[in-house]
Design a protein around this nucleic acid. Structure first.
Lengths: 140, 140
DNA sequence: TGGTATCATAAGAATGATTCTCATTCTCAA
DNA sequence: TTGAGAATGAGAATCATTCTTATGATACCA
């Protein structure tokens, strides 16, 4: 969300906040869900190879997160500390992904389920995502 | 689980249950989570191209389901009507996926969350998966 | 202000997973 | 048994992604 916070975060990680990186961050910030590289390239006067490299840099710095939908192509979004914790609504057909924010109560229930299951499986959780699968309007 | 049920299901869909398909189904049935094509090929006297084609046929017939982990490679498992409803424990690092079964109570809570969120988003749910992200033992 | 080391960019080649093609083989029903 | 349609296997083709390399920009130090 806040350009300033991101700029400082990158600076702290020794990563320059260049024009190309700014453009990618802005594109991701104004999207309503994860975006694929081809979608980004289509809307962004930045060449494909640079988009890939930029995303890799931003991911390493903890600014973007990667997601793989049912069509297998990688989609990128801002990390949750920037965009807020959320989940995904995925179309089985075309793979399009929309963000989904739960209510605090829903999130609390989900958290309890995750904690319980992870405890039983003896793993320490790093995160969780709920994917709700449906078929989007365009695909029916 | 039940070979017989699968055989009948395929027959009903006009799909032959050949030796190669049987081998793939058996390999998936005895795995503790989704398997990638390379893993299947390594343990299966069936050539790579046939594994891909077989998986596509089985997926179209509703016998296998596809999953894409954080490493972007496709992993396959038996459909939930065969293996039972379950969730996934995913390693951020290597992408390995293990099945995770919730208790009935946990599943009920999760179902309520999904129904509520889907209602708000005005979509009709086809399914849901909870992914718990962690780092597996080999990767630390 | 110039020099230099480091970082960033862009184009295209290389890789790796997946899909397609096509010639061959198998199966089943007539 | 035979013929039509289905399945197989090898390799070529495709597509997303990563790597390489040459070039350009930036920051820092004297």
């Amino acid at each position: 969300m806040d350009e300033h916070t991101i700029a400082r975060h990158l600076e702290d990680h020794g990563v320059r906040y260049t024009a190309a990186r700014r453009a990618v961050v802005e594109a991701l910030g104004s999207a309503d869900g994860p975006r694929s590289v081809s979608e980004l390239v289509a809307g962004l006067a930045v060449p494909q190879s640079s988009v890939y490299r930029t995303l890799a840099v931003l991911a390493a710095a903890g600014v973007v997160a990667t997601h793989h939908g049912p069509d297998g192509v990688a989609r990128f979004e801002l990390a949750e500390w920037i965009s807020g914790h959320h989940h995904h609504l995925v179309c089985t057909e075309c793979g399009a992904v929309r963000d989904l924010v739960l209510t605090p109560e829903e999130e609390e229930h989900l958290g309890a389920v995750v904690a319980g299951a992870a405890g039983r499986a003896r793993v320490s959780v790093e995160g969780h995502t709920l994917e709700i699968v449906h078929r989007c309007e365009e695909c029916r």
